[in-house]
């Protein structure tokens, strides 16, 4: 039997597994918004893990700071351990991103928001790489939810920092605003329309679709390669040529699977980073809207 004949079934199964399903019934359907789904369960695991990590590390930092203040011994402030070091590096990374992109004055204010995006997406992505695990970014519902928060944040900041008129006016470039009335109205109106769509529709849409598409594609690729391994590897036909070919193809698929796994770990970081830095860029353009 040609193992490739089984592939469509495998892929259909894979696509089904990646969709939003009740956590306890893979065959069932999500009938109401309150159904506890596979994504929610894995999201909860990621959330609890993230919270525990941060609570442990923050408690440790508070204790050490108090110790240093009390005894005057600055060695209490020395870096310690991998978890503490990793979270410190992550927080510093986000803080540097915020000050670099948004500016040293306004940047630090948005560190908690950007940090929540980054760590939530990153850690959830890592859980999504566990076989059968799910990432928030692996379903469009999750990424839409995150993109809406990002959208809400930068639109809110834009309006509150510049006022409604100031913010909307900033969508039209300075040069166009100073044109004679005809050009101002026609060209300005056209640019305003484009920029409006770009700011308020394209930005959140691309944020949501980019994260989802990257992770979904990654999960599909991993699923397909592991499907190949599963399909080819155990096949020992009477025909020796088929057996050798099956083992060879399975081994090749396994090598690719491992390489793709490494790549997906990279993607998990990159996508968390991209989502966060784009949100930072959008916030920056809102904070400084009236300057251009």
């Amino acid at each position: 039997m040609n193992p490739l004949e089984l592939l469509p079934g495998k892929i259909a199964e894979l696509v089904h597994e990646l969709s939003v399903l009740p956590y306890n019934n893979m065959e069932g359907h999500v009938t109401s918004p309150w159904t506890l789904t596979n994504y929610v369960v894995w999201g909860l695991i990621a959330l609890v893990t993230t919270m525990i990590m941060f609570i442990v590390v923050a408690n440790r930092e508070k204790k050490q700071i108090a110790l240093a203040a009390q005894s005057g011994d600055v060695t209490a402030l020395a870096p310690a351990g991998r978890l503490v070091g990793a979270l410190e590096a992550g927080v510093e990374f986000i803080r540097d991103m915020a000050t670099d992109v948004i500016g040293p004055k306004d940047g630090p204010k948005y560190v908690p928001l950007l940090g929540t995006f980054f760590f939530m997406i990153l850690i959830s992505n890592m859980f999504g790489l566990i076989p059968a695990g799910k990432s928030i970014g692996g379903t469009i519902g999750g990424t839409v939810a995150l993109a809406l928060i990002s959208w809400l944040a930068f639109v809110w900041i834009g309006f509150s920092k510049n006022g409604a008129y100031g913010y909307l006016k900033s969508l039209i470039p300075e040069g166009v605003r100073q044109m004679p009335p005809a050009g101002r109205i026609i060209l300005g109106g056209f640019i305003f329309l484009l920029e409006f769509i770009s700011y308020f529709i394209v930005r959140p849409l691309t944020l949501a679709v980019r994260l989802f598409a990257n992770l979904y594609a990654g999960h599909i690729i991993l699923g397909v390669f592991s499907g190949f391994v599963a399909l080819f590897w155990p096949i020992f036909e009477k025909d020796l040529a088929w057996s050798i070919g099956g083992v060879g193809a399975g081994a090749l698929a396994l090598v690719f699977l491992i390489l793709m796994y490494a790549f997906e770990v990279f993607v998990a970081f990159i996508q968390a980073y991209v989502f966060t830095i784009l949100t930072a860029v959008y916030i920056q353009s809102s904070v400084h809207a009236s300057e251009h």
Partner: peptide
């Protein structure tokens, strides 16, 4: 696959708010 399921949206918001 591109249907944003509400069952995935609101828990993400809740999780985000808690973590934030």
């Amino acid at each position: 696959a591109v249907y944003p399921n509400p069952a995935a949206i609101w828990p993400t918001w809740v999780a985000f708010i808690i973590l934030f």
